[in-house]
Amino acid sequence: MSARIGVITFPGTLDDGDAARAVRYADAEAVPLWHADDDLHGVDGVVVPGGFSYGDYLRAGVIARFAPVMTSVIEAARKGMPVLGICNGFQILCEAGLLPGAMIRNVGLHFVCRDQWLRVENNETAWTTRYEQGAEILIPLKNNDGCYMAEQSTLDMLEAEGRVAFRYVGGNPNGSRNDIAGIRSESGRVVGLMPHPEHAIDALTGPSDDGLGMFYSAVDALAKV
């Protein structure tokens, strides 16, 4: 039986269809999850996709964090369910307290849209085992509030505990501290990153198929449960 990975849709979500396609490319079943429904419908993992949930009013991700579905995601994540937050999804996971730190406006206050090289800093999470440690992957990036910020003590903890999952290579596009592009939870089951792996699953339509490894990694992790 294939893994069942839920993909959440909030008002303003843009990339749920792409995330669901990436799940299917990894030979898993993509299960649509609605923001106002607290039932996760028996999924094995969750993707919180990118977009502009609730129009990014107040602060990116802050309203979505209080959606009924997130109450269930937070509970499931704390019990070990793999969760991936992409772009706005990363912002939501930070607002929900599943990942430390916060996202603020890009340095220069410009929307950034480009193909971005990342280095895999930790390949022992539920979403990164298909990569070699230190591998460089090409993933599209598109954000306005993508600057990762945290107190120095938090940054020191992330670095000391190997919790930086991805780091920008070849220039920091948004001013993130320590060139951080993505981080993981203490357990390694929850990962958030600003670039969009779901847009890099097929070399015909993206700059690479490097993003597919994240979804295959989750399927591998679920097969071991």
Rank of each mutant, 00 (worst) to 15 (best):
A218P: 00
W127D: 08
L212N: 11
G211R: 01
K79I: 12
T154Q: 14
S187Q: 11
Y131W: 01
L118Y: 09
V62T: 11
G50A: 02
N178H: 15
C147F: 06
E132W: 03
A20F: 07
A22G: 08
R65H: 05
A76R: 04
G206E: 08
I183W: 03
D39A: 09
M214D: 01
A203G: 02
G51Q: 02
R78G: 09
Y216N: 09
R21V: 15
D15T: 11
I104K: 14
D145M: 06
I8Y: 00
R167D: 14
Q91M: 12
K79Y: 12
E29A: 08
G12D: 05
V73E: 02
G101T: 04
K224R: 13
C113M: 01
G182Y: 03
G17K: 10
N178K: 15
L118E: 00
A64N: 03
D37S: 08
W34M: 14
L222G: 06
A19P: 06
L155I: 15
C113P: 02
R189A: 15
F10W: 00
R184H: 07
M103S: 01
G12T: 05
G146S: 03
R167F: 13
D56H: 04
G89S: 10
D38W: 00
H196E: 13
A96P: 03
I137N: 08
G182A: 10
S2Y: 12
G85L: 09
G170P: 05
N172Y: 09
S217C: 04
E198C: 01
W34S: 09
D44E: 08
E121F: 10
I180C: 10
H199S: 13
M1Y: 11
C87K: 07
W127V: 04
M149W: 06
A181L: 05
N122D: 15
M81A: 06
I180R: 07
T129C: 12
D37F: 06
Q116L: 01
P82G: 10
E29Y: 00
H110I: 15
G12R: 03
G50S: 04
N178G: 11
A160P: 14
H41E: 13
V62P: 05
N144M: 11
V73H: 00
A19W: 00
A19M: 06
A160Y: 07
D15I: 07
P32G: 00
A150P: 14
G211Q: 07
Q116P: 07
V83C: 04
T128G: 09
M103F: 12
